[in-house]
């Protein structure tokens, strides 16, 4: 039997809602596990790639240098890269800071916000904390993205349809009713 195609997933500047939607496949997740081998993913908690993957699924945009680093790694390790959900595609909630200078954002968060107790006036700066980018970038502005699955989050059915189509080598064009929410 040929080796199963490998799939990797990651959540960058997202809320894990898209991954929740992935888990919302319910019993189909077992079927998915039969079809593919999960590589790096929060689902199995693998921290890095074990092998080259057929598909990489990215939730969330790039908010820090580490997000960029991870996304670049996904691009290099995966044949096809899929942006899923509002944040990966358009920036979503994290992009609300895009019109405010970084300095003001940090001061608001750590110094000025009501209820903040920070007598030393310290803005966290441990070398382990990745640097923030000056604004949030949607994934396709950082690396080339092959496929977009919109939604906040995309319904499990949309993710399922797209993955199954990709595995079958078909174009993953989502059905209209998977994309409309009113």
């Amino acid at each position: 039997m040929a080796a199963k195609p490998r799939i990797a997933t990651v959540s960058l500047a997202g809320c894990f809602g898209c991954h929740m939607s992935l888990l919302d496949l319910d019993e189909r997740i077992l079927k998915l596990a039969e079809l593919v081998e999960f590589d790096r993913s929060p689902i199995n908690d693998y921290k890095d790639f074990r092998a080259r993957c057929a598909v990489g699924v990215v939730e969330g945009g790039c908010c820090t240098e580490e997000n960029v680093h991870v996304l670049e790694r996904f691009r290099k390790q995966c044949d096809l890269l899929v942006s899923i959900g509002e944040c990966a595609i358009s920036g979503g909630i994290p992009a609300m800071r895009n019109n405010i200078p970084l300095r003001e954002c940090l001061e608001e968060a750590y110094l000025k916000s009501p209820g903040v107790y920070n007598p030393g006036g310290v803005i966290p700066n441990d070398p382990e904390i990745p640097l923030l980018l000056h604004r949030l970038y949607p994934c396709h502005e950082v690396v080339k993205i092959d496929l977009f699955i919109p939604g906040c989050p995309p319904p499990a059915d949309a993710i399922w349809d797209a993955l199954v189509s990709l595995l079958a080598g078909r174009p993953a064009a989502p059905a209209y009713d998977r994309l409309k929410y009113d």
Partner: peptide
């Protein structure tokens, strides 16, 4: 890899 129009050094200079 990273897209040519994405300039990481510019994106982190504020930070």
């Amino acid at each position: 890899g990273l897209l040519p129009e994405f300039d990481l050094s510019k994106a982190v200079i504020d930070a």
